[in-house]
């Protein structure tokens, strides 16, 4: 685009380029020096083979068992965790979003503190949150819901705040001119403008949450992850195969539904 065909690059930028290369080289030397590369187990090939065999011969009986834990129940649990987690975060991030949006309040300090708060919540990994919530409410789906709900506030709050910052202020001023109070201004001028964006971002976050919910079980926070990690640990590869297949199918279907709704809204 910009730099397609210079005959000769200026000297200073060549120096700059070389120093970048040398820096990268040093970084890689450092990175590779810390990794034990002799770590291949002699059984690796054999295990890989049995994994591939298991993945191509899934344990179909596991899909539905009349009594106890089966694939469908695990997937429904996962779905429910993702849905509820998304609901919780979509609800609680709204005050945060208004706090962080720079056109709602004039104070820079206020909006910056809101933005910092949201990015602080965002950087906290959800699995660590789940670990902590397991300590608080005990293992199970509820801990997963709380972890997803809290973690998603960070990202949804940021996206919602950006949506609020992008609204047209005309309707607000018009309402102000007619003597509306702040609540009426919010309800009749701001809310109708931001609702489509809010719904679209919530659906997008729901797609992400579904993926996260499917691994929460690995640490005991409910959903399909728990039977999956048990199956991996007991080397039951045909069961791993059917669970992976179930996750892939569920995620793909939900993605399709969610993105078709999003396309219609925006």
């Amino acid at each position: 685009m910009k730099n397609t065909a210079y005959p000769m690059k200026p000297k200073r930028s060549r120096w700059k380029l070389w120093s970048i290369y040398i820096l990268l080289f040093l970084v890689y030397v450092w990175a590779l020096s810390g990794v034990p590369l002799e770590g291949f187990k002699e059984t690796a090939g054999q295990i890989t083979k049995s994994i591939i065999n298991g993945l191509f011969a899934p344990d179909w009986d596991y899909v539905y068992l009349p009594d106890g834990e089966d694939l469908l129940r695990g997937l429904l649990d996962t779905l429910a965790i993702a849905i509820l987690g998304t609901f919780v975060s979509a609800f609680f991030c709204i005050p945060f979003a208004f706090w962080a949006a720079n056109n709602i309040s004039k104070s820079v300090l206020l909006t910056q503190s809101g933005k910092f708060m949201l990015s602080f919540i965002r950087t906290f990994p959800e699995l660590v949150m789940a670990l902590i919530f397991i300590k608080v409410v005990g293992p199970g789906s509820f801990a997963g819901v709380l972890a997803l709900g809290l973690h998603s506030i960070g990202m949804l709050g940021k996206l919602f705040a950006e949506e609020i910052e992008n609204i047209d202020l005309g309707p607000t001023e018009a309402l102000k001119a007619t003597g509306a109070n702040p609540i009426q201004m919010l309800w009749f001028a701001v809310v109708p403008q931001v609702i489509p964006g809010f719904i679209s971002y919530t659906l997008y976050r729901f797609e992400i949450n579904l993926r996260s919910a499917s691994v929460l079980g690995i640490i005991g926070a409910g959903g399909i992850g728990t039977p999956l990690i048990f199956a991996i640990q007991s080397r039951d590869w045909s069961r791993v195969g059917i669970i992976l297949l179930g996750i892939i199918v569920m995620v793909t279907i939900i993605d399709m539904i969610s993105s078709s709704i999003r396309k219609r809204i925006v």
Binding site: G34, R211, V215, I248
Partner: peptide
């Protein structure tokens, strides 16, 4: 698309079964 539906933690759990514990 298929690759992106599998969360990284699951991939890691499977690779741990193949390669053993550690950063690899």
């Amino acid at each position: 698309n298929l690759v992106r539906t599998i969360p990284e933690l699951l991939l890691a759990a499977i690779f741990v079964a193949i390669l053993g514990l550690g950063p690899l």
